[in-house]
Amino acid sequence: MILLQNSILRLEYDPATDILQVRYPDLQRYHMSEIKHSLQIMVQTIRNYDVRKLLLDARTTSVEIDDEENRQLTMELTAMLSATRLAKVARLQPFDPENEARAQRNIEEARKTGAIAYEVATFATPAAALEWLKA
């Protein structure tokens, strides 16, 4: 069922598997306040539905912000997600290898600071990600 759909995010939840699927938004500088607000709504939805499994689809996400802004957004999002009861987050890696390398650096930094309180894994295909989430 679709819980939210706007110009930035689409939240699709399957109560049978307890998986929330989200296409990660394009990171455009002039939309950052809207993006942050939408991510806060996503986290509130995770909290309200007590979601335990999240599939973030970043395959087509474009990144038009600098590395520091991107790192800060990742740290804020991981902190917000850690305040929920999420157990697993599966990421669908971006098609762009540079975006994936940046994302992996950000995830590693979040791990080092202890900001991630859930399992995180990265996958190339939705089928592999869903299989891991369901396991």
Rank of each mutant, 00 (worst) to 15 (best):
M1G: 08
M1V: 08
I2V: 15
I2Y: 00
L3R: 04
L4G: 00
S7T: 04
S7H: 08
S7A: 13
I8V: 05
L9N: 01
L11T: 07
L11N: 06
E12Y: 06
E12N: 14
Y13E: 05
D14F: 11
D14T: 09
D18C: 03
D18E: 14
D18L: 07
I19T: 08
I19V: 06
V22A: 01
V22H: 00
V22E: 00
R23T: 01
R23V: 00
Y24V: 05
P25K: 01
P25M: 10
D26N: 15
Q28C: 04
Q28K: 00
Y30H: 15
Y30V: 10
Y30N: 12
M32R: 15
E34Y: 02
L39F: 05
L39W: 00
Q40N: 14
I41V: 12
I41G: 02
I41L: 07
M42C: 14
V43G: 01
Q44P: 02
T45S: 09
I46C: 02
R47C: 05
N48Y: 14
Y49L: 13
V51E: 15
V51D: 09
R52F: 05
R52S: 03
L54K: 00
L54I: 06
L55P: 07
L56G: 08
D57A: 13
A58H: 13
A58N: 07
T60A: 12
T60C: 10
T60Q: 15
V63A: 09
I65F: 02
D66P: 02
D67G: 12
D67H: 10
E68F: 13
E68V: 13
E68G: 05
N70I: 07
N70C: 03
L73N: 08
M75I: 15
M75Q: 08
E76L: 02
E76P: 06
L77H: 07
T78N: 09
A79G: 12
M80C: 08
L81V: 11
S82W: 12
A83V: 01
A83S: 13
A83N: 13
A83E: 14
R85D: 04
L86C: 11
A87G: 10
A87N: 08
K88S: 13
K88C: 07
V89Q: 15
R91V: 07
L92A: 06
L92G: 09
P94D: 05
D96H: 03
D96Y: 01
P97F: 09
E98L: 09
E98H: 13
E98G: 05
N99R: 04
N99E: 04
N99L: 09
A101N: 08
A101G: 04
A103M: 05
Q104A: 15
R105M: 06
I107L: 06
E108F: 02
E108C: 08
E108Q: 10
E108L: 12
E109P: 01
A110S: 12
A110F: 05
R111I: 07
R111K: 15
K112S: 12
T113Q: 10
I116Y: 03
A117F: 07
E119N: 04
E119A: 14
E119S: 15
E119V: 12
E119R: 14
V120K: 05
A121L: 10
A121D: 11
A124F: 03
A124V: 02
A124I: 10
P126C: 03
P126K: 14
A127N: 09
A129I: 11
L130D: 05
L130S: 02
L133I: 08
L133T: 04
K134N: 11
A135I: 10
A135W: 03
